[in-house]
Design a binder for these strands. Sequence first.
RNA 1: GGACCUGUGGUGCAGCUAGGAGUGCACGCCGGCCUGUCAAGCCGGAGGUCGCGGGUUCAAAUCCCGUCAGGUCCGCCA
Length: 582
Amino acid sequence: MTSATSMRTGLCGEVGVADVGKEVRLCGWVARRREHGEHLAFVDLRDRSGIVQCVVEGSADLRSEYVVAVRGTVRRRPPGMENPALATGEVEVGDCTVEVLATAEPPPFVVEDRAEVDEAVRLRYRYVDLRRPRMQANLRLRAAVVGAIRRAMDRQGFCEVETPLLWAPTPEGAREFAVPSRLHRGAFYVLPQSPQIAKQLLMVGGFDRYYQIARCLRDEDLRADRQFEFTQLDMEASFVTQEDVLGFVSEAVLEAAETATGERPPAIDRMTWAEALDRYGTDKPDLRIPTALVDLSEVFAKTEVRAFTAPTVKGLRVVGGAATSRSGLDALVERAKALGAAGLAWFRVTEHGEDGLPGLDSPLARVLSDAERAGLVRATGAVPGDLVLAVADEHRTACTVLGQLRVEVAGTPVGQGPYRYVWVVEFPLFESIAADGHPVAAHHPFTMPHPDDVERMKTDPLSVRSQAYDLVLNGWELGSGSVRIHRADIQARVFSALGISDEDAASRFGFLMGAFRYGAPPHAGFAFGIDRLIAVLAGEESIREVIAFPKTQSGADLLTGAPKELPASQLAELGLRTAQPR
RNA sequence: GGACCUGUGGUGCAGCUAGGAGUGCACGCCGGCCUGUCAAGCCGGAGGUCGCGGGUUCAAAUCCCGUCAGGUCCGCCA
């Protein structure tokens, strides 16, 4: 493939030593110019591929970001004049004639990566921001990753099917964006939170391997890793088990990662949800951090220390953490309380004392027994210079609080270090018990319970495992999936456990349940967030950096001004009347 | 719904703790000089309701209250 067009012979960044002597015509933006009177000017010409220096004999009369076409001859730079900082630095385009294709006002900020610009300014002038190498690289990486995913899914026999954006409200789960119907006044479509139900219908429809690069929309508050609109690889397959799905998705993710990094990651690790909670205090463990939570309940089983009298005591070794200042430790204690713990114990580990016991610098050091001192240090593996943090509480609280501190104290930015993928399997079927006494579905109500646990759905619902699984990368949840219920009897039992009546089920999911009456194959699927995957692979902290036109945290589009009020005529046509704005 | 951080020429900052004239720095911009620069250099210049509103004060970028915008997080995200 050539990048030549009727207007240009190639791209700026592709000009090299091999082109010496050739006449070229290049198009792009004036990145920078260095003029030496009326006799000589250097113009750095930029297009999406990079920058090349063009030499104009005479006065150039150009301004930053003018769009120009340059005709000239590629030549080696004079000895000593090469610029190693530039990919094209060994050559230049000489004897240039320049045609201005479009003039430009001075840009609001310099089109260079090193210029740090307020994000609000970048978003208001996103079309300028997109010229910067960082955004060019991120969006091109995105395109490459999506291409790799499509290839992997095609290769595995999946069929891409589009599903509707205008869908029916299903009063469950995330807030939906509503779209008023002009032809049916007072009635609304909603934009899909995901194609979940549509893809299950496709399974009933005999598309036994479906996938889609699907836009999903959720009207929930935005975050660095959450936008109203995001893109998922959505997939579903029939006559498969969980193992098959993990294999399909792994193939797509590993192919995408190889495309992005040039290196195929090793097979993806796997752990149960219970293990993730116990060792990392979260369902999205960051395995780049070498330390894990340690159970100290045994050490403090018979403790006299009231602070450690709790169902579970969890400890965390912070390598080199003994240097933490007292104010820093106080802040950690406050943070632990804010996260829901009753308190946080800390121990600076020092050299062994004369009694042969590890030295502990802590307000609690005096009250610990010798066995507890030794056990604390032995269990955590701490050495002098380390810090040990401990939380005593209910098992879940102790784990989650310390797990959060593990990330905050020992973690690194998401894009740094190795990429550690992990499957978290055997999620609980229910995540909590609601005020009405019924359990709340952890994933969605079509998730298949673990066959060994079905009988406990009524008696001990929180102990029921499901055939649901998450894919996690460097502490980011990339996506989740499950084996779906395809049998009416099991579905009825789950609805019953959830407290969903037959009438409720019929009104919410009636068309899906109806479809299942006509022969539903066993099926399972997955969906993962492509924005998040690309952000991590691009080393970005926010998915906004891998989206061309993202919204701000308040959901505004600073470029278009959306959301905006509609003219009264349009409201009338839609049969809408608005309340007083807040 | 809540917590915290930020808001000063086009851009990025300093100034705010301890009130005293829109003060400073870097980049950019405009003009001039300059035939090998490359984040060009040198000389000169323009450009600001200190986010907005109110309060305290003889005096507010600075202190107080409110509000708006951007960001990070909690809630929320089946």
